[in-house]
Nucleic acid binder design. Structure first.
Lengths: 331, 331
DNA sequence: CACAGTATTGCAATGCTGTGCAATCCAGTT
DNA sequence: AACTGGATTGCACAGCATTGCAATACTGTG
């Protein structure tokens, strides 16, 4: 309980060198003789010395910390993304600070303030959008910002998005090829840009083929919403024979309700598509045709951008690959 | 790209006070007049000042950082626990650093070293066990350690575990009451203490009732393992009529394989129980009887212990509540 | 052996904040 | 008016590591 970390000073004394020598031993590319280095490392090892990154960050004006601002951490897609990002960050010598914004809604701003306090080199935002003023404050402080799947026209941050509309078009083609004419779109009420892009992309593609789409929206983006949406859409006079769900979680709920409460056989009587390719989509009970979020590519893109000095204010659109499974006929 | 954070010095100049006054304004319980406070806050707001937690941590010898050392972040149970812990940490004014140890295997030690470098006040370990020497180093530095679900006899850390054996006993009772006699246990090869405790607890309870248990182990703890285990156990001459799966993920895989490949009806021909109560266990396709990991209680216990000064070296056993659903007959 | 050139090393300043200590201010009291 | 006690305030040091600069050690060459 003494809380005594050993400092470079002590290592220096034990090794019989100056404090600078210790510092240089632990700094990439600094000039130290092999002999000094050996003595320092030995002393450090025996005392249990570790460079104090707080002090280093203070001095270098670069903490090595990257803030991950996330809501709904327990969700399959989010947690997969977190996994990928932390891995990439660690590979490039940085470390992730995780901020959970599930509580209130001003909390993204709170999170960004926290990021500033710890002098994070960057923040990666996977939940709501930050207030423009605070985002500017971050950028002005030299902190970089990455927005994932939340389209925004602010200048400065890197914005990574998927080709949602393109994906929606492909789903439509698949549905039509399977002989479906009675289309539906199952969405949540969250209204995030990527969800809305899937919805409007789907509707637009349908319109080109003279087809109509019944849209239903309900609650948060999750399994339960899928069940409720199934209740709504499958009790319509013209029952849909194909439904594109805005996310896999919604699709799972939808499929379960369709089978158990309406005894509908998938894909014979109803074709279903999802989005995200969460692990559960591949489970035998669902075997859902869906679009894979390129989580590793997203993570690589974000972290690479953080390491580069130039090219602020960029916009990247990544491709979501169709993963064909048995929830759509034909293929 | 200027990377210029505003410092207390600048705020002091703008407000026409000393730097100490600024510091005191942002320190709980320090003595500042209302007028000075007002001037400081105003200047701080207009300049966009935020206390530098790196410097504060350096000075106070208390960074406010808690390291979460986790493997398999994308897994439902793990991510739910991360969510609960980050929430609790934030409520008590701390912040989580997330370290992903999925890569190599010495990585828990690497992670702890990282924790020391950032002078984390504590580390919470949800993955492998740390080398004893390094754990000692952490404790000696005044860093606290929490081990969740990984029993270990080291002195110093808080160890939080569940009553796995007790749970196993209750499952057995339920199986017997449902008329099952041909018992099986489906485990992974991971061999973590909690998994093994469930296994041996189940076997011990069965033995008391003169029943035998067929044990199978395979691969990592996940859905795929469940499928393989089903292949093995359901092709035995004496096919089991009840199986206790070490985790819900295994149970989901097991159920899917049982139904689709063996056309077994659950719970009529086979009773299934799981452990963790992940979200998917409540999905209609599974509706799995299982034990709820008290994630919020775990998180509260851990964070509370971190805030208290005394009582190092403690051992806490929490209760996993049975969640009764339809995968076991009767109820 | 002298000298140029390079590799090491130590000094001291720097980054930012918290806090003990002494000085100062203010209000209230006799 | 002098004095007392408490609240504020500023000074200066501490905490830890990085790094420019100048001094020193070392290597090789003519």
């Amino acid at each position: 309980m003494s809380k005594v970390f050993v400092s470079a000073q002590e290592v220096a004394e034990r090794a019989g060198v100056s404090r600078s020598a210790v510092s240089r031993t632990f700094t990439q590319g600094a000039s130290v003789s092999a002999e000094t280095r050996r003595k320092v490392l030995e002393a450090a090892e025996s005392l249990g010395y570790h460079v104090n990154h707080l002090a280093r960050g203070l001095m270098r004006n670069e903490s090595g910390i990257v803030c991950l601002i996330v809501s709904e951490i327990g969700t399959p897609y989010r947690s997969a993304l977190i996994r990928a990002i932390t891995q990439q960050l660690q590979l490039s010598g940085k470390i992730a600070m995780l901020i959970n914004t599930d509580r209130s809604d001003g909390s993204v701003d709170l999170a960004l303030r926290q990021a500033i306090r710890y002098r994070a080199d960057a923040s990666i935002i996977l939940s709501g959008l930050p207030d423009k003023r605070i985002a500017q404050l971050c950028l002005k402080s030299g902190q970089r910002l990455v927005l994932i799947n939340r389209d925004d026209d602010q200048e400065g941050p890197l914005r990574i998005n998927l080709d949602d509309a393109e994906a929606a078009r492909r789903v439509l083609t698949a549905f039509v090829r399977a002989g479906c004419r009675n289309l539906a779109f199952a969405n949540s009420e969250a209204g995030t840009p990527s969800l809305m892009a899937r919805e409007s992309g789907f509707i637009a593609a349908a319109m080109e083929m003279q087809l109509e789409v019944t849209v239903a929206r309900y609650g948060h983006t999750g399994y339960e919403a899928g069940r409720v949406l199934a209740q709504r859409l499958l009790t319509l006079p013209h029952r849909p024979d194909a439904v594109f769900c805005a996310t896999d979680l919604i699709a799972c709920g939808f499929m379960d309700a369709a089978r158990q409460q309406f005894s509908i056989s998938i894909p014979d009587q109803l074709c279903v598509a999802g989005f995200d390719d969460i692990e559960q989509a591949s489970w035998a009970s669902y075997d859902l045709t869906t679009f894979a979020q390129p989580v590793d590519e997203i993570a690589r893109t974000a972290v690479m951008w953080l390491s580069q000095g130039q090219d602020l204010n960029e916009r990247v659109k990544l491709h979501a690959e169709l993963v064909w499974r048995s929830s759509i006929r034909g293929g």
